[in-house]
């Protein structure tokens, strides 16, 4: 396999290519996007050589574009991901969503003792620097990308 990232046009005419997903994280990203119901063809490339990260995953989703919430979900799961919109076998637009300081009503706190699991509380997760980039606004529990769960 070549170390050059596959040209999107070699895979599909119209759709979305998500690049720079951490090695072996593409299945989790794909599961989160909940594309099964749409029945779109999907190609997944796992462990492709990467000059920056040694190995990376890519997702190719035919004839589909993410909305802004889905874009945010992708970057919450895969912080280095780039979303490429494909038209006529070419990359029409590159999207690199910025993380907000607080993610509201999108992510579940993974701490089972958190007040958000026992009361009707608006979910709020802070994004912070460091190896554990998410912190529950209420219980202050810090966690990694691996523990991200959506409402």
């Amino acid at each position: 396999m070549t170390s050059t990232t596959p040209k999107s046009g070699q895979i599909m005419e119209t759709g979305t290519m998500i690049d720079h997903i951490a090695f072996w994280q593409a299945p989790k990203v794909l599961e989160t996007l909940k594309l099964q119901a749409l029945g779109k063809p999907v190609a997944m490339l796992l462990g492709h050589p990467s000059s920056r990260y040694q190995k990376k995953d890519l997702l190719f989703i035919d004839n589909w574009e993410p909305d802004s919430v889905t874009e945010l979900k992708v970057v919450l799961l895969a912080p280095y991901a780039t979303i490429n919109l494909i038209r006529d076998f070419q990359i029409e637009k590159k999207i690199k969503p910025q993380l907000p300081d607080i993610v509201e009503e999108l992510m579940l706190c993974p701490n089972p003792r958190c007040i958000t699991h026992s009361e009707e509380v608006p979910h709020k997760i802070r994004t912070v620097e460091g190896r554990l980039p998410f912190e529950c606004y209420y219980c202050e529990f810090r966690y990694s990308h691996d523990q991200v769960k959506f409402l």
């Binding site: 007040i115 958000t116 219980c139 202050e140």
Partner: peptide
């Protein structure tokens, strides 16, 4: 005082 983590912030 509350048994749930984060109860006071809420």
């Amino acid at each position: 005082r509350h048994p749930r983590d984060g109860a006071s912030r809420w």
